[in-house]
Design a protein around this nucleic acid. Structure first.
Length: 419
RNA sequence: GGAGAGGUAGUCAAGAGGUCCAAGACAACGGUUUGCUAAACCGUCGAGGGGUUUACGCUCCUCCGCGAGUUCGAAUCUCGCCCUCUCCGCCA
């Protein structure tokens, strides 16, 4: 959520920057409502001050045994007027909140302006693998080995749910364990949060109201299934005032992620590429505004560390204004190369959301003792998402004899060198 | 799921229709004193919003779990909901 005051004071500038994300954005209505809101506040507060004075006068007269019938009748009228204005004010505020809830974050100055495909490749790491034998894609490998059972998963839940069996299940658990402990050992507090959350929490993360169609909802209990631990972890310090000395606060969580993925996808997104349920290890930071971009680089480096340890070839991509999630000011994706598909796929998305989420969740810190609290900056980064990572390992580490070499860092966890 | 008890500022806690500001304590911060630290004493000390000011500030409104209601006036009375604790039931 963008601060209303910012819109009021830098209307033209903010509108121009938001239009790099969505050209249809128009702030004039918000501006008009804000003016109306402040006029109402002035009026209603003047009347309330009058009422408070009058009520005190009633108290005084009663104590002194004087008559106050006429005064009370007047105050009753006044009170009715206050109720009406309060109601109008509430409606205006609701309208403003409705608009604000849908606006995207102001993009950082380093973010390239443009469409989704105008992304900037910041760097490419490792060498693109060169096949010396006919390459199979991860689905062919999995089928050969009988380690991914989409057919029976469909029986249990429906299409696009993965079921890992045998070696794939081992590999999946090993990946989760490796990443979770790696980050936990690098200064992130390990967390296993609830996998469901209420509407308020998803509003804070900004999954709601804009992306309600993308997440699963349990009607009876009015709870939503976690689509990314970002939306859970941001709520860890809802309504808190943190001390500057404890920042950055950084967490790593393991969660399954559930996404409805409404819409259809073609051949290239078969298999593990786009599924309703996948596992993810997620990093999350609460920082000061001064250090948040420095911390973003650290999150990216920590995510890259996993890909390097697994020996994967990948590239680092800076997203454009039109490709970022609503809450992000700046987003950098890590894309791993899948030789079976001949292209790169996102396995991590690292974002600085600045104060967008913290304002919604009222998450603040005190810069120094006795100073006014300020909103923290929040950052998130996958470290990493496993279903695509598993596809990457299967495709990159396949050997001519049909076996799959297990990355060295996972060998001791699984207790084998090949699948 | 059922019954009972509770939820007041960073923490503890008083307050049970009207005394200008929600008492008090602790913590924190500033100061005095002081070889240093501590103690003692003095002072400051919740959040959000509106108006005003170059600014320090001044001023008004709101907030006692959340939301409605009664009243001239609600932390206080009424109703609904949420959460915590204790016990019972069910359950891995």
């Amino acid at each position: 959520m963008i601060e209303l005051r910012l819109i009021r004071e830098h209307y033209k500038d903010i509108e121009a920057r938001l239009r790099t994300r969505d050209s249809s954005i128009d702030l004039s209505e918000i501006l008009r409502l804000d003016e109306q809101r402040r006029e109402l506040i002035a009026e209603v507060e003047r009347l309330k001050a009058e009422r408070n004075q009058g009520s005190q006068e009633v108290g005084r007269r009663k104590r002194d045994g004087e008559n106050s019938d006429e005064l009370m009748a007047n105050l009753s009228q006044l009170s009715n007027r206050v109720s009406e204005l309060d109601e109008t004010l509430r409606e205006t505020q609701t309208q403003i909140d409705g608009y604000l809830a849908l606006l995207p974050n102001v993009p950082h100055s380093s973010v390239p302006t443009g469409a989704k495909d105008e992304y900037v490749v910041l760097r490419t790491v490792g060498d693109k693998p060169e096949a010396t034998f006919p390459i199979k894609n991860h689905l062919e490998i999995a089928e050969e080995k009988g380690i991914l059972d989409f057919t029976r998963a469909a029986l249990i839940a429906g299409a696009r749910f993965p079921m890992y069996v045998g070696a794939a299940a081992r590999l999946e658990m090993a990946l989760i364990q490796y990443m979770f402990f790696r980050h936990a050992n690098h200064g992130y507090v390990p967390v296993i949060p609830p996998f469901m959350a209420n509407a308020k929490s998803f509003y804070v993360s900004s999954q709601l109201p804009k992306f309600a169609d993308d997440i699963y909802h349990c009607d009876r209990d009015d709870l939503y299934l976690n689509p990314t631990a970002e939306s859970l972890l941001v709520n860890l310090h809802q309504d808190e005032i943190l001390e500057a000395s404890e920042l950055p606060k950084q967490y790593v969580a393991y969660t399954p992620c559930f996404r409805r993925e409404a819409g259809s996808y073609g051949e290239e997104e078969r298999g593990l590429i786009r599924v309703h349920q996948f596992n993810k290890v997620e990093m999350f930071k609460f920082t000061t505004p001064e250090s948040s971009y420095e911390e973003l680089e650290r999150v990216i480096a920590d995510a890259e560390g996993v890909l390097q340890a697994l020996g994967m070839h990948y590239r680092v991509v800076l997203l454009t204004t039109q490709d970022m999630a609503q809450q992000a000011s700046k987003t950098v994706d890590l894309e791993v190369y899948l030789p079976g598909q001949g292209r790169y796929y996102e396995v991590s998305s690292c974002s600085n959301c600045e104060a967008f989420q913290s304002r919604r969740g009222n998450i603040r810190y005190r810069p120094a003792p006795n100073e006014k609290p300020q909103f923290v900056h929040t950052l998130n980064g996958s470290g990493l998402a496993t279903s695509r990572l598993m596809a990457a390992i299967l495709e990159n580490n396949q050997q001519e004899d049909g076996s799959v070499r297990i990355p060295e860092v996972l060998q001791s966890i699984i207790g084998a060198e090949t699948l």
